[in-house]
Structures are given as C-alpha cells and as structure tokens.
Amino acid sequence: MKKTLLALVGAGLLFGGVAANATPEQDRLNLDKYFTNKYPDIKLDKYVYGALAFDADSMAQYDSIMDFPPFGTVVDQGQKMWDTPFKNGKTYASCFPNSGKNVAGNYPYFDDKAGKVVTFENAINTCRTTNGEEAYKLGDPATMGKLTSYARTLSDGMLMNIKVNGAAAQAAYEKGKAQFYSRHGQLGFSCASCHVYNAGNHLRSELLSPIIGQATHWPVFRGGENLVTLQNRYVGCHKMIRAVPFAIGSEEYNDLEYFHSYISNGLPMKASVFRK
C-alpha cells in the first residue's frame, strides 16, 4: 500500500498539494488551499453539503426537502432504539460523555491500547456488548444504520475534531491516506480521482463532491428512506470502479475513514440528510 502511494507521488507531492511526508494538518490545510484556489467563490463550510456546494439550484431543492425530510420516521425509530434501555436498565447514553451529545465528531480515534482505529459504530457496539447485548452488524441499515441516523444528530453543529497523536496513530492515518490516493479496480480509479482532481465535475449524470466536508454528514438517505452509511458508500464506490471492496469495519476502511474524517476537521457536522 505504501509503495503504491510512493509510486503515485513521484517527486514527493500528490495532486491537490498533498505531500507524501506531510503532517495530517498540512494535508488538511493543503487541500483547503487547493479547493479555495480552484473555487474561490465557495466558502469551505459550504462543502459539508457535498456536491450541492457547486449547484445553487440543487441546494435550493435540498433546503426545500429538508423542511420535511422524507426519512423522518427512520430517524424517529433510531431515537427509540437509542432511548430504549438494555436488559440491565442502562442506555446508550450511559456509555458516552455528555450522554452522547457532541461526541461523534471525535470519531474515529486511534486506540493505543487496542492498537487500531475505533469508529463511532465500533464504540456503539462496545457499549452494547459491555451491557450484555449482542453487537450489531456494522453497516446494517436496519440496526446500526438506523441507530446512528439518530445518534449522530446529537452531534449536529459540533466541529469535526479528529486527533492523530503518536507514531501508531500516524501510521494508521498514513495507511488511510494511501488507500484514498491509490488506484483500485479494473477502471484504475482512486478516491482522489473523483473527490480531489475532478470534484465539481460531472461523471456521467453525477456531480462529484470534494473530500472536504464529506465525512461530516453520514448516514445519508438517498431517494427517500434508502439509508447509506459512510462505509456502505466506500463499498459502493469500490464496486463502481470494479474493485473488490473490503469488509465494512475492516482495518482498511477504518483507516480510510480516519484519514477521510481528519480532512474535515473544523467543519460542522450534520447527520441524516438527503442526497440524490
């Protein structure tokens, strides 16, 4: 994986100003600068709306839809799941600081004791098993997806706040970065092919969103109540480029989410939104 990244960077720089040996904060600032220079009329915080930032008409339609979101019943079901006590009488809120409010923006984080990246979904499953419940299948729209469709709204407005501290955390971040910039599948696309170099352009009928802000608004609902988690989307993207996807919750996808989320640091979170 690292060799693939090094082959891509050539003289030490990736497109978009991201350097192979840059710190995470340098990566973030370089990408901010790249998109600011490319689209000077778009403020960085508008990228939390994904591709809608490039299309005023679509943004207006989105605002209208979100006045009465078609997926409200699903989020309500997620709230009921969140509030329903476990068999031992405790709730999800007991597992998180501030009863789960303004915490999701701290995930993923690198757990030094476990030696791996922990996502918000991993933390929810730990909460379940610690309280005598079975873990949910990661990425399952009917369970984990529905629950997080509400749980993440408790952090709406929180600024993404991902930390990369220490050599092991840095290594996981670099693996995620390599995953994002490496080419995959029969079509030879990387995540960056669409979401850095071609962000703001159309691929067939789809307007491509930028990496900045992408990690702030999951799960999303597509076409009404079709719930899609972030790692579900990773799987979908890999399939579209004719690559074999990794498993949801795998080290590869968790590291990718770690890098991906860090790049949105400082932007406000907004979970459970509508996307085309």
Rank of each mutant, 00 (worst) to 15 (best):
G132P: 06
M1T: 15
E121I: 09
I65V: 12
M66R: 10
Y62V: 03
D111R: 04
G249S: 07
E134A: 13
L227G: 00
L52W: 00
A171G: 02
K3N: 13
A168C: 02
K87T: 04
I65N: 00
A114G: 13
Y181L: 11
L13D: 11
G224Y: 09
K3S: 13
T130E: 13
A56D: 11
F110N: 01
T91V: 07
A56S: 07
G188L: 10
V273T: 07
M66H: 06
V196A: 09
N226P: 06
R204S: 13
T143V: 04
K90V: 08
A135P: 02
N102R: 05
E225R: 11
F246A: 15
G12F: 12
S193T: 15
H184T: 04
P40C: 01
M269C: 02
A114S: 14
K101Q: 07
P40M: 03
G10W: 00
F221M: 02
S193P: 07
V228K: 14
L14F: 14
L203Q: 13
I212D: 00
P210G: 08
N98I: 05
I263P: 00
D55H: 06
A199H: 00
W218C: 08
W218I: 06
P70M: 05
C237A: 13
F180V: 08
Y34L: 09
I42H: 03
A172S: 15
L31R: 04
S272I: 02
L5H: 12
T36K: 15
V18E: 10
N165H: 06
P69I: 05
V228M: 12
K43A: 12
S190K: 08
Q186F: 08
S149R: 01
P108F: 07
L227Y: 01
Y150L: 06
M81T: 12
P97C: 03
G16P: 07
E206I: 14
V235W: 01
I211Q: 07
V48T: 15
C95D: 10
A271P: 01
V220M: 08
G223Q: 12
S193N: 14
K116L: 11
D112Q: 15
S94L: 03
V235K: 04
L208W: 08
N102H: 07
N88D: 14
A169V: 02
Q231P: 10
P141L: 09
